[in-house]
């Protein structure tokens, strides 16, 4: 049940972000899909106890990978698909907890949470870059059709 819930809400949330970023109408479903797959990877990994950093890394890698496939297929810039998908991974909850602890004068907990939040932001970045590098290598080795 909870997996179905997550599937539906992550799809809607990512597609809604497509609307906020004014992505072309025909790409909204694909925005939703890339966000949904990414979130499912994150959710499954954290559910099995792999920790949020690894989960975020794997999820953003997959989002960038899917976005590159979409980008090639529909001849649109890759960010159209990846941006909406990455949003759910942004550690908004942790940033909030950080702020809350700072306000409550619990600076030690606050700093620990802030470091965790920056680790996760870093994981998003590294995942995106890994995927791009992989795509570059694949293209270079010629195992994929040449880029348009």
């Amino acid at each position: 049940m909870s997996y179905v819930e997550q599937l539906v809400t992550s799809f809607i949330a990512s597609a809604a972000f497509g609307v906020i970023f004014n992505a072309p109408k025909e790409s909204l479903v694909k925005c939703g899909l890339s966000g949904m797959f990414g979130w499912m990877v994150y959710f499954t990994l954290t559910d099995y106890g792999f920790g949020p950093v690894l989960g975020t890394l794997a999820a953003s890698f997959l989002i960038a990978f899917i976005s590159q496939i979409f980008a090639k297929q529909y001849k649109m810039p890759m960010i159209i698909f990846s941006v909406a998908g990455v949003i759910p991974l942004v550690p908004g909850g942790l940033a909030y907890d950080t702020m809350r602890n700072f306000v409550e004068n619990d600076y030690n907990t606050g700093i620990a949470l802030a470091v965790k939040a920056s680790m996760i932001s870093g994981a998003i970045a590294v995942g995106l870059i890994f995927s791009e590098v992989l795509n570059y290598l694949l293209r270079k080795s010629g195992s994929q059709p040449t880029k348009q």
């Binding site: 960010i79 990846s82 941006v83 949003i87 942004v90 908004g92 909030y96 970045a125 995106l128």
Partner: peptide
């Protein structure tokens, strides 16, 4: 607050 998060800028 999630809709306000600077996701595009960060990426």
């Amino acid at each position: 607050v999630m809709p306000l998060v600077p996701g595009l800028l960060l990426t």
